[in-house]
C-alpha cells in the first residue's frame, strides 16, 4: 500500500484509483448515512476521489490514508447537507449533554434507521468512526480534529439518542 501511495503522490492516477477503490464502498456507506440518498452519496464519493487525488501530495503519513479519506468524505457530505439546507448547522452546546453513564453496549442495538434519522451530523461522524471503522476515541478525535473530551461527549449523546429511539420502538411494539 505504501508503494501505491508513493506512486500516487508522484501523480500516478492508476495507483491512486487502485488504492481508492479499496475504500470506496466504506466511503459510500458512510456518505449515505449523512446524505440519505444514493445520488448524493455517489456525488460525495466522486468529490472525495477528486479532492483526495488533488491533495495526496500533502499526505505526510501514509498510514493515515484511510482516516484521511474518511475525513474528506465526511467534509464532502457536510458540504452537500449545507448546500441543501443553505444553513450551516450550529455547534451544539456540548455541556448540556455530558453524561458518562451511557453504556457503550448499546452499540449492539444501533440500527441503520437510527443512524440515519436520529443523529446530528457530528454524532454520526463519531459513532461511525468509533463503531463502524473501529477507531479508538482518540483516533476519532484526531480524525475529526476535535478534542478528546468533545468526541466522548458527542458519542454519549448520540448513543443516548439511539437508546431513546430504541425504547420508543420497543414501547410501540408492546
Amino acid at each position: 500500500m505504501l508503494k501505491l501511495i508513493k506512486k500516487a503522490q508522484k501523480g500516478n492516477d492508476k495507483a491512486f484509483l487502485e488504492l481508492f477503490q479499496q475504500y470506496e464502498q466504506d466511503l459510500y456507506k458512510m456518505a449515505f448515512i449523512y446524505v440519505k440518498n444514493q445520488n448524493d452519496a455517489l456525488d460525495v464519493v466522486q468529490e472525495t476521489a477528486y479532492k483526495s487525488f488533488k491533495s495526496i501530495k500533502e499526505l505526510n503519513e501514509p498510514k493515515y490514508f484511510k482516516s484521511w479519506l474518511i475525513r474528506i468524505a465526511i467534509s464532502c457530505s457536510l458540504d452537500i447537507l449545507r448546500k441543501r439546507r443553505k444553513v450551516v448547522p450550529l455547534k451544539p452546546d456540548f455541556d448540556e449533554f455530558i453524561s458518562g453513564a451511557v453504556d457503550e453496549d448499546l452499540t449492539s442495538e444501533i440500527t441503520l434507521k437510527g443512524l440515519i434519522e436520529e443523529l446530528r451530523e457530528e454524532e454520526k461522524s463519531v459513532i461511525l468512526l468509533r463503531f463502524y471503522q473501529g477507531m479508538t476515541l482518540r483516533e476519532v478525535s484526531e480524525t475529526l480534529n476535535i478534542p478528546l473530551g468533545t468526541a466522548k461527549t458527542i458519542l454519549y449523546r448520540g448513543l443516548g439518542k439511539l437508546r431513546k429511539d430504541l425504547e420508543g420502538d420497543e414501547a410501540n411494539e408492546q
Binding site: 484509483l17 464502498q25 455517489l42 464519493v45 466522486q46 472525495t48 476521489a49 487525488f53 441503520l112
Partner: peptide
Amino acid sequence: KIEIPKELSDRSRIGIEKAK
C-alpha cells in the same frame, strides 16, 4: 444493508480523472 450502486467505481474514476 446499504446497497452499493453499480456505478460507484465509475464515480471514483471520474473524480480522479477530473483531478488529474
